[in-house]
Structures are given as C-alpha cells and as structure tokens.
C-alpha cells in the first residue's frame, strides 16, 4: 500500500521572481489542503522563516528550500542556466542551523549584489528616467533585506515608467551572465555544495534545458528529478517519473508557481517516502492524506 502526501515544493515569493508574500504563498496552499510546502526562491532564503511561521500556525510543514542557479557552459555562447532545488531537513529551522549553511550565506551575498546591480543600472539612466522610477531616491538607502527583488523591481518599473520595462528586462539577464562569483559553477558542483550543507538535491524542470546530453549527465548525478511541474507537459512528466523510478531516484511534483499559478500535479500528491526523505524525519500521521 502506498501513502501519499499533498505537497507543493517549488514556488517563488516576492523575494525572487514571484509576487506572493511568504504568508500568501503558504495560505494559498493551505486552502489547497496541502500538508507540506516549500517556498523555493532563486538562491535566497528570505522567505523561509516567515513561511515557516505561517505554516506552523496552519498545522503544515515547511521544508526550507531554495532553487540554486548553476550554469551549463558558463561564459560561452552556449551558456544556459541550470536550476537545482535544495531541500533542507526540517530541523535546519531550529537553532539557526539554516543560517550556518554555505548556501544561506551565498544567498545573503547574492542579495547584496542584486541591490548593487540595480542601483548601478539606475545610476546609468537619464536622470529624468531615474526620477520616474525612484522619485524620492529611497532605493539608495534601502538595505538588501528590503530591497525590491526581481519581480518587485519589474513591477516597479512597469507601474512607474512602462517604457523602461524592456530595457530592464533585457539588462537584468546580465546579473546572472556576468555574475561569475556566484553562478559560474556546474550543476554537479552546486549539487556537491547542496549535499555538503546537509540538503537534498532535486533537478528542477529538466525538460527546460537545451543541452540534453549534459542534462542527462546531471540527472545521473542528482538525487532526484522534478517530474511534475507547470513547465512539463503531462507526457513529459510521466517520462521523468518513469526515469526516476527506474534509476531509483526521487521524483517530485511541484508548481514552480510565480503567482498562484494553476498547475498540474498527480491527484494524490507525492509519495510519503519521498517527502520523508526530503524532511529527513517522519511526517506526523495526521498529515498523511491517503493510503
């Protein structure tokens, strides 16, 4: 008999390129009847503790997570981002353990670099354009923790000075392409750090990557694969699930939600055994939905 748990372990908040607050992110999934959730922003963990508080008050489990950015062929014309989800055990939330990890510290540095990157872009604008986006000059004095992340910055540009949207969208790609300090590593190297931090690595939306051969090599190295996601058609999801089961790897089902998106998932959620592998502890019986 197989036990299942209703989950969503991949989605974004306003701390990266999502729109939901951590509280809204968890509350939406609470209404969906989910038992275990993860707010997995790109490279930063700012949402985790807020989401954990909301989840705890809703009787849910919050898995500390982030979507780590690596690259295939960084710095070449064939460069493409490659994302690996890092799931920390629930116990990482206690006694500041999450904050001790190298990925968390990397996230803080990335956050600081993002602030500098945006301020540099603003500084290069025509003063009239800059005034439209930041009329009071408050961004200069905004600390990294409160500085608008990607989606919030896009929304700010669209609302305050729509003609600059395309310019900012095109410019922001350089944050990654030129961010060798943080992103010039292979997925395998990222996976090694994830494991060294005590977390579990799951390759995010594997069908998205152009380089199939390298993707297959990373999948062979990884602990698991995100099979069901809004980025995969149903038949693709089934293929990745079959691959994972044949290779005795983990497979997950998540939304990759950026704003309460509708998404596909197997009706029963995820395997209890997988959820508990990621949590690195047993799930309370009351949260197991079906058997």
């Amino acid at each position: 008999m197989t036990a299942w748990v209703r989950t969503d372990l991949h989605g974004h908040t306003l701390f990266s390129d999502g729109r939901a607050t951590p509280e809204e992110f968890v509350a939406f999934r609470r209404e969906q009847g989910m038992a275990v959730v993860a707010a997995s922003d790109h490279d930063v963990f700012d949402a985790v503790r807020r989401a954990a508080v909301t989840a705890q008050r809703a009787g849910m489990v919050l898995l500390p997570a982030a979507e780590i950015t690596a690259f295939l062929a960084f710095g070449t014309s064939a460069a493409e981002q490659f994302h690996v989800l890092a799931y920390f055990p629930v116990r990482a939330l206690s006694a500041g353990r999450l904050e001790q990890t190298s990925l968390y510290r990397r996230g803080l540095r990335i956050r600081e670099r993002w602030r500098a990157f945006v301020l540099e872009w603003l500084g290069d604008l025509d003063p009239a354009d800059r005034h439209q986006i930041d009329p009071d000059g408050v961004l200069e004095g905004t600390p990294p923790a409160a500085f608008p992340a990607l989606q919030s910055m896009i929304d700010r540009v669209v609302v305050r000075h729509r003609p600059l949207f395309e310019a900012f969208r095109d410019h922001h790609v350089r944050f990654w392409a030129e961010g060798a300090e943080f992103f010039a590593w292979t997925p395998e190297e990222a996976i090694d750090v994830i494991r060294a931090d005590g977390a579990t690595d799951i390759v995010a939306h594997p069908a998205r990557y152009r380089d199939r051969e390298r993707t297959r090599a990373v999948l062979d190295y990884a602990s698991g694969v995100e099979a069901y996601t809004s980025r995969h058609r149903a038949e693709i999801a089934v293929e990745y699930r079959a691959f994972a089961e044949a290779q005795q790897k983990l497979w997950t089902a998540s939304s990759d939600d950026h704003q309460n998106a509708r998404y596909m998932r197997p009706s029963s959620g995820m395997l209890l055994t997988t959820v508990e592998r990621l949590m690195q502890e047993q799930l309370p019986l009351s949260l197991i939905s079906a058997a």
Partner: peptide, 28 residues
C-alpha cells in the same frame, strides 16, 4: 477566516474574475 474557508470548502470555489496582462522576467 481560515475556519470559514474550511467549512465552506473554499478550495472548490472558482475565484477567477478575469484576465490581465502580467509582466515578468520573460516578458509580458
């Protein structure tokens, strides 16, 4: 409110009220 959500089964309610253009990192 969350108890009310549970009692009325808010999950089964279609809350969509329309569509809009959104702007994200990949365009609109």
């Amino acid at each position: 409110d969350w108890r009310a959500n549970t009692v009325v089964d808010s999950l089964s309610i279609d809350r969509q009220i329309g569509t809009a253009i959104g702007f994200g990192r990949f365009g609109q």
